[in-house]
């Protein structure tokens, strides 16, 4: 049953993104920023945690999940280290993903060249 929940949650989040791109003038870049910020804010308000419990990877793989990890990390950071944790917690929690994206991205960019489009 988990698989169905994962699929539906992930699918719905993507459909919201699609509607934003088709129905408004927002570019993919705007949608990325909006979703990450929204994920963080919803986590702060305690709304995103239940979605993650329900949808699992369906809620953590889409970009609001990135915002969720950031906000959750910051809150946990405050719990363990006080105010300094607000600064370190979120970035610590997402560091593997961000570092991987940057390092892999750099490596791929060095190896491959863009191709013309047909």
């Amino acid at each position: 049953m988990d698989y169905v929940y994962v699929f539906i949650t992930g699918g719905i989040i993507c459909v919201i993104g699609q509607l934003l791109m088709d129905g408004t003038k927002l570019t993919p870049a705007h949608v990325l920023v909006l979703f990450v910020t929204l994920g963080a804010v919803l986590t702060g308000l305690g709304i995103y945690e239940p979605i993650v419990d329900f949808g699992k990877s369906g809620a953590t793989v889409p970009l609001p999940g990135f915002g969720y990890s950031l906000a959750k990390g910051a809150i946990e950071g405050v719990k363990s280290d006080g105010l300094l944790g607000a600064f370190s917690g979120g970035i610590e929690a997402t560091a593997p993903g961000v570092a991987a994206a940057v390092v892999f991205g750099y490596a791929i960019a060095v190896i491959f060249s863009p191709k013309t489009k047909k």
């Binding site: 791109m21 088709d22 570019t27 993919p28 863009p114 191709k115 013309t116 489009k117």
Partner: peptide, 20 residues
């Protein structure tokens, strides 16, 4: 040229997006 105009005015060639 498609590839020079695209990168200057829009997105990189390999950037994933749907054109309206």
């Amino acid at each position: 040229h498609f590839s020079t105009a695209e990168r200057q005015y829009r997105f990189p060639l390999e950037h994933g997006n749907q054109k309206p």
